[in-house]
Design a protein around this nucleic acid. Structure first.
Length: 475
RNA sequence: GGCCCCGUCGUCUAGCGGUUAGGACGUCAGGUUUUCAUCCUGAAUAUCGCGGGUUCGAGUCCCGCCGGGGUCACCA
């Protein structure tokens, strides 16, 4: 491997938004390329024109951009081997399809849809019966002349095995009989994946094809194509799938989300990369926070697990919370931008001090706003709840509150530390236990029983607002 | 159904003939604490899918079975 220049590609079809499992493959492709100082290429495989989804291509770019999976060549930035969109390369596929027909590695097939359907009538797993495989040149020419629609199919050997060494699966040996004569060129003149990807991978000098295991069974076709065209096949690596919690294949039908949705849910790109990296891979105890470039150093394509991995959101949550703690509050402020009300953005200092308190309580960026809300809006305070927390009579509680108000008013210092000291003293004389004393104040000031440390909250609220909230409980 | 891949705690995994089968997340308990969280400590959870071999000795090698997944389109 040391003497080959590594070039990997991710070749999504814009028939939908890639789900997170597909994106993991992108990550691995990126890491593989960068580990060997090679190129990571993105190619759009839009050969299925009927199922194109508008905007999918843009979303594909966006996912890679947001995760920092920088491409060296793609349809936008271009490159020496473009175009990078398959429908712009149609003449190329046509040329090689013709060559394959000429050398006897492929043949014209005139079977219509109905006949093909009939083949599956008795057996849903029936393969193409190779009806047109042995048409005489004259017959073919006749049909061509008469304008019959046709496809071009591979003329796969009827016996033998395809053998290759797969970087992650090890040595594989698949019987050729298991693949039928797949369509290479559709009747509309657009190639199928099998032809297009082989042609492009070769022309784009892709050294390693790292893709999902769902492609494993059609690899004999691809290998045959390389051989027939006289090309050296790339190194192959088939990576396992990501499964849902119910062990079923991650799919849109089962609500498999795209990276874009996880980002919207408040997960950080760093955490997503980190999480994806650990699924099916092992490094130390799989809990270290790793940057993309650290992953590049650690990544080892031969150590990718062969078994399917189940997507475990709890691990993502953990990694996300750790990454949140890892960022400074200033950085978090920027990242929080679209997760908080616009009005808050003007009060940057205040938001940052809240972030200081909130960040060790957050799993996702979405957790911030609900936790910070009462700093900006006066909460509804339930007097009963205050009393419940104080566990004393209304009169006693009122007295304690008055004492607290006085204490704040008479103290020239208004820092968390000083307040803590003073209130600790006052509490001792109050007849209330620490819990009773402080919890009742907490509820009075926030409307809730769970908040960051009380006096930090006092400080952020400000003296005036704190007094206002404290005195309004019993007014 | 044919073919192919896979099978160690709930999850991600370490393990590459001799280990008390280790770690992380999660879970539970305790500590810190005015609440929550963080942080720290500890615990439970795997007869290594099952059954046969090979071997002095197997999670590790072989065979069979079972289970899971993938694939069998003019979709990728």
């Amino acid at each position: 491997m040391a003497d080959t220049h590594v070039r990997t590609r991710i070749a999504p079809s814009p028939t939908g938004i890639p789900h997170i499992g597909n994106t993991r493959t992108s990550l691995f492709d990126y890491l593989l390329a960068k580990k060997y100082h090679g190129e990571f290429i993105l190619r759009i495989e839009d050969t299925d024109q009927e199922r194109l989804v508008e905007g999918a291509t843009e979303k594909i770019y966006k996912i890679h951009d947001l995760l920092g999976l920088k491409r060296d060549e793609d349809p936008i930035i271009g490159g020496d081997y473009g175009p990078y969109i398959q429908t712009q390369r149609l003449d190329l596929y046509q040329k090689y399809a013709q060559e394959l027909v000429n050398t006897g590695a492929a043949y014209y097939c005139f079977c219509n849809e109905e006949r093909l359907k009939d083949l599956h009538k008795d057996n849903q797993f029936a393969k193409y019966d190779r009806h047109c495989r042995n048409l005489s040149p004259e017959e073919v020419q006749d049909k061509l002349d008469s304008g019959s629609p046709y496809v071009i199919r591979v003329k796969l050997p009827e016996t033998g095995f395809s053998v290759w060494h797969d970087l992650v699966q090890g040595k594989l040996s698949l019987p050729n009989t298991e693949c039928d004569d797949k369509v290479l060129m559709k009747s509309n003149g657009i190639p199928t994946y099998h032809l297009a990807s082989v042609v492009d991978d070769h022309l784009m000098k892709i050294s390693h094809v790292l893709r999902g295991v769902e492609w494993m069974m059609s690899t004999p076709v691809h290998l045959f194509l390389y051989e027939s065209l006289g090309w050296e096949p790339p190194t192959l690596a088939h990576v396992p799938l990501l499964l849902g919690p119910d062990k079923s294949k991650l799919s849109k039908r089962h609500g498999a989300k795209s990276v874009l949705e996880y980002l919207e849910d408040g997960y950080l790109p760093e955490a997503i990369n980190n999480f994806l990296f650990y699924l099916g891979f092992s490094y130390k105890d799989n809990s270290a926070l790793l940057t993309l470039s650290e992953m590049v150093d650690i990544f080892d394509e031969t150590k990718i697990q062969r078994q399917n991995a189940i997507f475990d959101i709890q691990k993502l949550d953990y990694l996300n919370s750790q990454w949140i703690k890892n960022f400074s509050s200033e950085e978090l402020f920027t990242k929080l931008n679209c997760f908080i009300p616009k009005e808050w953005l003007g009060e940057k200092d205040k938001v940052i001090s809240i972030i200081n308190l909130a960040k060790e309580r957050m799993y996702t960026l979405k957790d911030f706003a609900p936790a910070a809300e009462y700093f900006f809006t006066t909460p509804n305070v339930d007097k009963q709840l205050v009393l419940e927390q104080s566990a004393h009579s209304e009169d006693d509680t009122k007295t304690w509150f008055q004492k607290s108000i006085d204490l704040i008013q008479n103290n020239k210092d208004y820092s968390s530390e000083i307040l803590h000291q003073e209130f600790a003293k006052a509490q001792k004389d109050s007849g209330l236990s620490p819990k009773e004393a402080f919890m009742s104040l907490r509820v009075a000031v926030s409307g809730r029983t769970i908040t960051p440390p009380l006096f930090d909250c006092f400080v952020i609220l400000g003296k005036e607002e704190t007094l206002k909230r404290l005195s309004s409980v019993f007014s």
